[in-house]
Design a protein around this nucleic acid. Structure first.
Lengths: 185, 185
DNA sequence: ACAATCATGTAATAAGTTACATGATTAA
DNA sequence: TTAATCATGTAACTTATTACATGATTGT
């Protein structure tokens, strides 16, 4: 049954590799990791804290990361995780492999597909709200971009992805709005 | 942050609404639906056939869609599903609500974050392969776009989203390649 | 005849969310 | 002192994937 199973690195739990990548970038607590994935990394791998904490403990149990207790400078005590040498090896192997295409789950696009079910003004309002949401996200990425240099190449490129993705989404929203506005009633 | 959250409507089983939207756009069999979601709709809602068939049967049981047996013109007999009046109502309510932000799961971005773990040439090869993949997808969308008119506004806008998204991804790949190439060894 | 594709289905498992909990610290 | 945020955790549940199956039809 499970003979070749868990020798090493074979069965990729995607979240584990994501966390490894995040911690390699910078040591973080579970809380900070969650925030990072939900803010800066929203466009990489969105996840809830209830998935993060157990995964971190497993990674530590596997010896891929280690934790240090840090007194809370502005908050209670927390565990700061960082990647071990073994974790770095695992991570390198994972990074060297190509990815499958990202799995997208965007309901909004399907809503637009059916916009002829709505009165024009309702549809327009919705797409404007969506645009505003992505505009806010774009501004967040632009601010990060402004403080990053080529010395932090990884974070800079991740942020660039955020900028380009949000700009593309906004451009699409504008096209949608324009076409809807021109639509015959 | 945003007021896109929810307004009270269908207890969202997301896939069901996605299928409803797809069938409203055009009646399809389970097989065709799966293909559509994996090709044209890859950038909307990726899913496996094993999720599609049970969901379709549930939708039919709920009276939101109905099926007709069609003799296989080029294949065995299949069931063609289409949206009922009740389904259309449900769909309209769903379309009227805003979406939460799309949940993205893109390992590739995290790999790029850690590209300093790889030799320059390995990283470049990988990003070139990713670029080629998205280039192929872009060409697929461009071909669809060419045969659509403003009379099929929904499908056209969905296709435009594909085009813009792939162009943005390709532009990012190019930035990554350029920065990696300039990176000091 | 054979492979490829069309077409559908089920079972076991994986992965992640929601809801439920707890408690500490900080700013008003 | 009260609310907000920091910080972590568990249990039940939902959702979707992988692997396993079956069989028909079409092109070569």
């Amino acid at each position: 049954m499970s003979d070749l199973k868990e020798a090493k690195a074979s069965k990729a739990k995607p979240l584990k590799n994501v966390l490894l990548a995040g911690l390699y970038n910078q040591p973080r607590s579970g809380y900070e990791m969650t925030k990072w994935l939900q803010m800066a990394g929203q466009h990489c791998w969105s996840v809830e804290h209830s998935s993060v904490y157990p995964a971190l403990r497993e990674l530590e149990k596997d010896g891929l990361i280690k934790s240090e207790r840090a007194p809370g400078t502005r908050g209670p005590e927390r565990s700061i995780y960082s990647v071990t040498d073994a974790g770095r090896e695992e991570l390198t192997a994972w990074v060297a492999n190509g990815s499958p295409r990202p799995a997208i789950k965007d309901e909004q696009i399907l809503r637009v597909l059916c916009f002829d079910l709505l009165p024009r003004e309702t549809a327009l309002q919705q797409i404007r709200a969506v645009r505003a949401d992505h505009q806010a996200q774009l501004e967040f990425f632009l601010e990060r971009q402004a403080v990053l240099t080529e010395h932090q190449l990884g974070p800079l490129l991740v942020t660039r992805r955020g900028v380009l993705a949000e700009q593309a989404y906004i451009a699409w929203c504008d096209e949608v709005a324009e076409m809807i506005a021109r639509r015959p009633t």
